[in-house]
Design a binder for these strands. Sequence first.
DNA 1: CGTACCATTGAGTTGCCTCAAACCTAGTGG
DNA 2: CCACTAGGTTTGAGGCAACTCAATGGTACG
Lengths: 235, 235
Amino acid sequence: MKYIQTIPTCETCDLQKFSVFKHLTKIELANLSIDKGCNFFKRGNVLYNEGNRINGFYCVNQGVVKLVKTGIEGREQIIRFAQKGDIIGYRSILSKELACTTAKVIDDAVVCFIPASKLFGLVQNNNSFAMELMKLACKELGEANKFILDIAQKTVRERLAEVLMLLRETFGLDEDHVLQILLTREELANIVGTATESVIRLLSEFKSDKIIALNGRKIQFLNENTLIRLSNFYE
Amino acid sequence: MKYIQTIPTCETCDLQKFSVFKHLTKIELANLSIDKGCNFFKRGNVLYNEGNRINGFYCVNQGVVKLVKTGIEGREQIIRFAQKGDIIGYRSILSKELACTTAKVIDDAVVCFIPASKLFGLVQNNNSFAMELMKLACKELGEANKFILDIAQKTVRERLAEVLMLLRETFGLDEDHVLQILLTREELANIVGTATESVIRLLSEFKSDKIIALNGRKIQFLNENTLIRLSNFYE
DNA sequence: CGTACCATTGAGTTGCCTCAAACCTAGTGG
DNA sequence: CCACTAGGTTTGAGGCAACTCAATGGTACG
């Protein structure tokens, strides 16, 4: 982690238009930039650890961050990802609890830090912002609930197929249908909630079935419909 | 479900003092009572179904409601319980999504219904209320995240022990250490995320180990420390 | 060129699921 | 009062998905 030369200002940040900050006034945005910190983080860097008291929240400007909970014998469970425009740490601040996850960079990232007081100020004075924030929390809650059902009832194969489609939604594919995020087998296992070896075996099954192609950590999507069907997705 | 004679008014409702409504003014509380519906529901009644569009939220005055998601071959996963003072359905309203759970009564209940417009009005005009609501959503989100970790990494035995302690926290024990909520074995399984038979086998194991005593659906706690230890709870 | 990390494959084990049958209890109605 | 039914509970048997452990191969990097 190191200080970067040009701190992106919130007023000129393009991401702001599509994020939770979209309803802020010019003045509010300018105010947000004051006291703001901004750092560059390399893969593996940790923004904060589970159990930390954090006094602000983070806004991802570039790169990818994973939010993980650590369980039995240090095994990680990936709860969600954050990429450009996403904010993290807001949950702990609003609920006035300790951080319930560790935030670890998995793709070199530029991340801004905004003190909690700013967040509370905005919630107090800008109802649209408060609504956006609530919407965000409620959306995440809905996703978490869905994930509970999946992990409780689906097989590992179904979950892996679903996770692949989920990653596809989140990070997209390039022109060759290659997934635009590189994860280790272990990280994949930590999303699905299974053993690394199980992921490896299932991936190579999918490969023999011509559903995906593998090249190191690159995953190429060959047959999305089958993947959706395998994930046992309905409704 | 039938109309009840005396609709509890929000101003005089004791529950209000400890709930998300605790910062409302007398006037706001009075206003909340207007247009409010209130019904009595018997065990098995459904307040709303997963996928419904709901145009208001519910406040539990008496009894217990379970929120479930329905998965493969109709098997239910219990996401959380709501009892007196708790509100349900607010997530869908705030995130403007369809209901992500079905709300089913498991202990005869009196439940008030408040139109969504009232909720939005309060969020607009009362910042403390907006904060409380956000706090609630974020707290639930934290719990959901924890549950994801548990269900992904713990054994069924550990999860059952944990669920028993969780129920103990939520519903309490009477003077004989009997859990103050009656659930079928199937419902227990639907919280833990396992098969009914597995719950039965493990419960009778706990019984032979003198950790609990069973009498129909009544569960008596004999040794909470062992239960905590079995749940693999740490930190 | 060694070290570290990750990926892969095989073998063996087991926790948990499914299926099936029997039993218990409470409610209904003749 | 008893027979009947329905819903829930319990126990047994058998099978398999997925885990653990272990060994090997590949790749990147200082």
